[in-house]
Design a protein around this nucleic acid. Structure first.
Lengths: 197, 197, 197, 197
DNA sequence: GATGAATGAGTGTTCATTCAT
DNA sequence: CATGAATGAACACTCATTCAT
């Protein structure tokens, strides 16, 4: 059996990856506003024109990068997901996975943050993104049915069980906290107290 | 006693006000990235050059606008603040004040959101801003002392007692919720459960 | 009496003039297709940005330049216009004026030619341009009434009494002819024979 | 004798044809200025690189397309050419053939028009193009010898017997005329009156 | 204080062309 | 022969900022 070496294909994947990484890095370093296509191109070691081979325009580049990050986040979040554990344990695992992601991929997380508070956020296909988080929603619903979790709107639950993570992970807002395991577990206690019946 | 009529001063204030309102409005409508000085000038009915009389540069304009908004927010937040009430009641009042502000001045709130997730956020004098929120912090500390509130880092408390408000106020994240008084009070119950001992 | 020196005003007029002349010169030298805004700016010794103070965009610049040229043409054409002379004499005078213009302002003429065979041509307000040529049309109509000129559609008359001038003035199409007065008068004889009854 | 089947050759011609048709169509639709190689390639359903197999560069593509059109025009023009008819009849036949072509292949005609008023026009081998029109020139010369046509420079004759056709065929200049057979014959009368002795 | 004109440097995007496959 | 990927240079246009008035 002969396996042919296909440099083009290989190169392609590398280029697209490089462009996304450059986008994330730059937005992380100099911000959304100052991150121009040509700067991104330079950072990725490609020509500005090359970016337009992979993405329709700047908007497409940013939105695609965001969606990519969100997908990775959902994968990280659901690592070792076991729906048969007690609900509290499941949620705590999710919570720890999330912090793991936000600390390891801090720049991805920061990109997503800037993106989602910009008007670009309106352009993402929400359904597609939310689909990845479906298992989590199921857990919350099950908790409500089993009278373990308060019977309130899912968005309200999310505001207490997930969004505090963003705040706590955001070094700008929370400079003083060291995110050690103990601290995170303490914080989770508050989250759980908020939503549990 | 003679009181001089000072029309210029008055005019100045009007212009400064107009520039800030234009900034907020534009950032709200077309986003941080697209809001240029000349567009802001046009929206405020002044010359671009005029903006540079009141602000050192664009950065100064944006930062000043943010600080202004934060001050207004703290004023709104502390309306009818009565430190002698039970802690829960104080916090619930703050919570309701906050929603009142975020719904009445939605564009100010959105501006602050975009701003604070951008690298510009690093440029604000945090002490100055936080000073306005001092009374709130005092309340939390008192609650901890009185063993009413959990003894955890203030940033963690804030993550549960304040930041969920941002999430719930953000129409992009929470399209489905109608922010009626009842809903807000329900949500506050979760916040209180999170931090109370 | 004091006359104030107003450099700004003066400069303005000069700049606009310089931009138009640069546009005409460049289109004349390197053609419509290659004449970019930045090249025009360089030729006019202004910044590209300056052009956008005087014109909304490139299209506006080109169309305005064309309209300007057409107006100048109509003025040149109608020099010493005397409606009381015999119709043939009037038309011959127009004919000679036209050649005078196309030879003295050859580059303006060439610009107009390139412009009017481009899709931009569809953008000019035809009424505005044609208004300037009203006296000529009146003469033709009068000639028809007086049974001196053939009673055919005005566009057909124009095709024989005016457009041949373009051809004969175009050095690309007619390299071999020297446009001396005698030659032009000979050519006019053909034009007159075409339209006269 | 063996005849090889040469499908490639056939294919080639098809591609070349497609490229030329795409060029004409695009120039016709979006104009000379906006017609880029890659747009032409897309219109012709080939890769941009393919165009460079058939043509040296963009200039070559445009010039070749023009020459091709001119050749087709001369063929159409000389259809049923019969040098033994009376000169007037020959010229009228040419005139009608021309209108037939300009109406049936309006986009080809428009392309030629844009091309010939651009500086590209200087790049065509005039001799090669004019050779095709040799029979027409012969007729004019014969007419001069026979004292049927005025003894003036051929370019002047052309300006009256041919170029008015361009004007009348140009929908931009002559929107109001319907080019019915009767109208064309009327117009020809003027052309003939212009050049006849 | 207030401005419109002015601009060099930058924006996002497309260009004509090449090259490895 | 045919191509999609790639690109530096250029495109039309806007930017933040300054300056003479």
């Amino acid at each position: 059996m002969i396996v042919y070496f296909r440099p083009m294909r290989y190169k392609d994947e590398l280029k697209k990856e490089a462009i996304i990484e450059a986008t994330v890095k730059l937005v992380n370093e100099i911000g959304f506003v100052s991150s121009s296509v040509s700067k991104i191109a330079k950072e990725a070691n490609v020509s500005p024109a090359t970016i337009y081979i992979y993405y329709k325009n700047k908007e497409d580049l940013l939105v695609s990068t965001y969606v990519e990050i969100k997908k990775n986040l959902s994968i990280a979040l659901l690592k070792d997901f076991n729906p048969n554990l007690p609900i509290r344990d499941i949620l705590q695992a999710l919570w720890l996975n999330m912090f793991d992601y936000t600390s390891k991929r801090a720049n991805h997380f920061k990109f997503a943050e800037q993106f989602s508070s910009s008007p670009f956020a309106g352009l993402v296909n929400k359904n597609e993104v939310e689909k990845s988080f479906e298992p989590v929603i199921s857990i919350l619903k099950k908790g409500i049915e089993q009278k373990i979790i308060k019977d309130v709107h899912l968005d309200i639950l999310a505001a207490f069980i997930f969004f505090p993570i963003y705040t706590l992970s955001n070094s700008r807002l929370c400079e003083s906290i060291k995110l050690e395991k103990e601290t995170i577990e303490t914080a989770f206690t508050l989250a759980w107290d908020a939503i549990k019946l």
